[in-house]
Amino acid sequence: MRNFLLIFQKEIRSYFNSPIAYVVITMFLVLSGYYFYNVFASFSTVSFQALSDPMLQRQSGLLNITERVVRPFFGNLSTFLLIMLPMLTMRSFSEEKKSGTIELLLTYPITDAQVIMGKFAGCFGIFSIMLLLTIPCFGFVVAWGQPEIGVIVCGYIGVFLMGGAFISLGILISSLTENQIVAAVLSFGSLILFFMLGFAATKAGPGMRDLLNYISFIPHLYSFAKGVINTADIVYYLLFIFVCVFLNMRALESKRWRG
């Protein structure tokens, strides 16, 4: 536990000692804030128009703030995270391999699992900070509307789980190469692939459709954003993280094997 905390602390420190944490967090907040402004402003415009237009009022869901603001916002957060999280994870093992510090780290009396979990937790810490900083957005929603609080909480749980999955995959990939650019590109690529798997589902046969939908990231996030906590979705993300961490441990071990 102590080793895990030490690695965690070291990771957090190195994110903040370099510009990475500041740049990634700022950029993420700029993007999500700008998107929120737009979606919230257009919702209020529509609300104003609806005051004088009974036709608009009758359209279902148009004036539902949960449906029009909260859910799209979570949907887009996931896209921004897709871009930002590989920036955080790409250095985690690659940098240590490139600079050789991995040689010392792996000759200290600590287990691979402690190293991986420490790095995962460090990255997750930065991710949590940037995600929690989006909460003020919902302050506006709550102050000037009546959204369903449950849906917001649920959405955050979903995004946290999804971010965890992104991070575990990113760290796994970074343990496979000593080149940070390669790690970043591979992480982007595979994350986008997991996003797009759902696209093929519409054209696939019934069995295949379910499978593709289950493997893809999006459907799982959407049910969270709808305010549904489904055990299957939680299990999906946790399993995803578990598999990535497991493969990561094998990858580190194989490095020892292959020399």
Binding site: R2, N3, L6, I7, Q9, K10, R13, S14, N17, S18, S99, G100, T101, I102, E103, L104, Y108, P109, I110
Partner: peptide, 19 residues
């Protein structure tokens, strides 16, 4: 190979903990 973004006492304290 050392972590270049730490000061020696901090780095050594980190290593001491791991050891």
């Amino acid at each position: 190979p050392l972590y270049t973004d730490m000061k020696p006492p901090v780095y050594l304290a980190f290593v001491a903990g791991l050891k």
